[in-house]
């Protein structure tokens, strides 16, 4: 079988719900994970933010990779191609799960199972003119693994109509996927007396105290090499998480996600955990996985 006919066999197509237009897709064979480019809103409005997303259906037992400190795998990679003047923000990553790929604490990854939606907010320029549909393309790559790993890719596209300013937004049928994803987006930690989790330092150990009935987990996202033991430290005992770092609070840099669950494993909240406490330099528009993690 020649390459051409094989590729034709891979061509899939589907239609986005609502007014957002049809999408043509080139996609690797749907081996254990299938990607779609979706829009939360049925049309774009000049000067407003349009929420686009890439959503994956993942087969039972298989997983995709978070963009954080993983020993193996490859994080989902999204590159958007937008019309002139349209600006994509950074990919919004829901909090992942932890997974040991080998016993004995040698390989630790942060993953997504079943379904995940990565939202990419797009700023629509004030100058955008009304149109039946502007074309937005997403070049998506991923690695889906169980015991074996299979690389996947998709060239997705969607036509989004542009309506004049002051038009009321209309949600697409896909909007609930955006809501679901946002529930797992890490929120900034509140400081002060009402803060649910208090951070103190004991030498170079960061101590995070929550409710004694909570299970706290830390998922390091950047500065991967700073934790002394990122296999055992990042899961709490009795509601207290003790993270040992190689240097103390004066010099250490920490960026990751704090996941709070009850003892049954039901998620109660996810927070951005950074040190120094002010958010570190954000990497807006950074949809390409960094080459090195330090």
């Amino acid at each position: 079988m020649g390459l051409h006919s094989r590729l034709q066999g891979l061509m899939l197509s589907f239609t986005l719900a609502g007014a957002a237009g049809a999408a043509d897709v080139a996609q690797s064979e749907p081996e254990h994970a299938r990607a779609r480019l979706i829009s939360e809103h049925a049309f774009a409005i000049p000067g407003e933010t349009l929420a686009l997303g890439v959503t994956f259906d993942i087969d039972q037992g298989w997983h995709l990779y978070w963009d954080g400190c993983n020993d193996s795998g490859f994080p989902i990679d999204i590159k958007l191609t937008l019309p002139d003047g349209w600006i994509a923000g950074g990919v919004q990553w829901p909090a992942p799960d932890r997974r040991y790929a080998a016993p004995g604490g040698l390989v630790l990854d942060h993953i997504y199972e079943r379904r995940v939606t990565l939202i990419v907010p797009v700023q629509v320029p004030e100058s955008a003119e009304s149109s039946a549909g502007v074309n937005i393309a997403a070049d998506v790559e991923w690695l889906v693994c169980k015991d074996a790993c299979i690389p996947g890719f998709a060239e997705l596209s969607v036509a989004i109509p542009v309506k004049p300013l002051h038009t009321d937004p209309v949600l697409t049928r896909e909007a609930p996927l955006f809501e679901e994803a946002r529930k797992a987006h890490p929120k900034p930690m509140r400081g002060g007396a009402r803060a649910p989790y208090r951070i103190t330092w004991e030498g170079s150990t960061m101590v995070i105290r929550g409710d004694s009935a909570d299970v706290l987990s830390f998922y390091p996202q950047r500065e991967c090499g700073r934790l002394v033991d990122r296999f055992t430290d990042p899961v709490s005992k009795e509601g207290v998480l003790r993270l040992r770092f190689k240097d103390g609070p004066e010099t250490v840099r920490v960026q990751g996600v704090l996941d709070v669950r009850d003892r049954q494993g039901v998620r109660k909240g996810v927070y951005t955990l950074t040190w120094p406490a002010t958010p570190m330099e954000t990497r807006a528009g950074d949809t390409i996985h960094s080459m090195t993690k330090e």
């Binding site: 690797s28 799960d97 997974r99 004995g104 015991d147 299970v215 987990s217 055992t232 996941d259």
Partner: peptide, 25 residues
């Protein structure tokens, strides 16, 4: 992709609390 579809073995747990590694290992 050719030839990399072999699958076998047992799926590990992936929740935040399960399958903590043994330090001694």
């Amino acid at each position: 992709l050719a030839g990399c579809l072999a699958i076998g073995g047992v799926m590990l747990s992936s929740t935040a609390t399960a399958s903590e590694p043994e330090k001694s290992a």
